[in-house]
Design a protein around this nucleic acid. Structure first.
Ligand SMILES: [Mn+2]
Ligand SMILES: [Mn+2]
Ligand SMILES: [Zn+2]
Ligand SMILES: [Zn+2]
Lengths: 126, 126
DNA sequence: TTACATTTGCAACCAAGTTGCATTAATGGC
DNA sequence: GCCATTAATGCAACTTGGTTGCAAATGTAA
């Protein structure tokens, strides 16, 4: 069961994703909202927002969990299997609209493909 | 500084990778060698073997660390930027010889690309 | 065999994420 | 608006992958 009640915590979290177009790590959210809600609540609300296909999650550079807004996903499934880019300098993470072509792998049935690119973002590129 | 002394721990770990062609998670190695060496030693030796380009590491499904033998890498750098495949049924992980083409990303300089494919392996595919 | 730097074990620690449970608060019916 | 119901929250304790500091052990070159 996803989100049922529009609680203060739900609104606060959605607001973070509205004012910021890039992905946000759970760590950052917990810290940023530490005065407004408990970390357990952050985890639980994000979990439900993902269930509802409002957000999608993925693992960043060190295995930490990140979330970003979905784009054209319905409750029947996530549509946006896009790569993510993390800047090795500033740590910022973005969803890339690019499509990565995964070739057929012999003897294996691929269901999920997770692509994390690392390098320098525009701001950090000298 | 990488491996300097061929200690018992180094030999034991290398032996695990010799008798097994797929990748091995640190968790598995710690458990499998628990009677022979301390988990701290497992982490430290693996670290050095990676420095020496004998092994390479990557993060699996839940952000856990995995290691696999390198293939044609020299101390000057890892050559094998290949995708990894993890079976969602049995959990086994393999290095894929396949090459994934990463398209040019505007406004970003890509240094590392990390691809984790998930699905069913040959053994688990009905 | 000896000397000495490297490696190891151990125990304590760190931090991301989870769980159980009592309390609080959103919501629909009246 | 008020109440009853039940979802959502806070909190504290826990789990666990990974790290650190340091004293003891061990590999190696002379
Ligand atoms: Mn995304
Ligand atoms: Mn590999
Ligand atoms: Zn940057
Ligand atoms: Zn399998």
């Amino acid at each position: 069961m996803g989100i049922v009640r529009k609680t203060k915590s739900v609104k606060l979290l959605l607001n973070e994703f509205d004012k910021n177009s890039s992905a946000i790590s759970v760590i950052t959210l917990i810290e940023r909202l530490s005065l407004k809600m408990n970390k357990t609540t952050v985890y639980r609300v994000l979990d439900k927002l993902e269930e509802d296909k409002i957000l999608h999650s993925f693992l960043g550079k060190n295995g930490y969990k990140w979330y970003a807004k979905c784009n054209g996903c319905s409750v029947s499934g996530h549509q946006d299997a896009h790569p993510h880019f993390q800047c090795s300098d500033c740590g910022k993470v973005d969803c890339l609209p690019t499509n990565i072509l995964i070739p057929k792998i012999p003897n294996r049935k691929v269901d999920i493909s997770q692509v994390l690119l690392q390098g320098k973002c525009d701001d950090c590129y000298v």
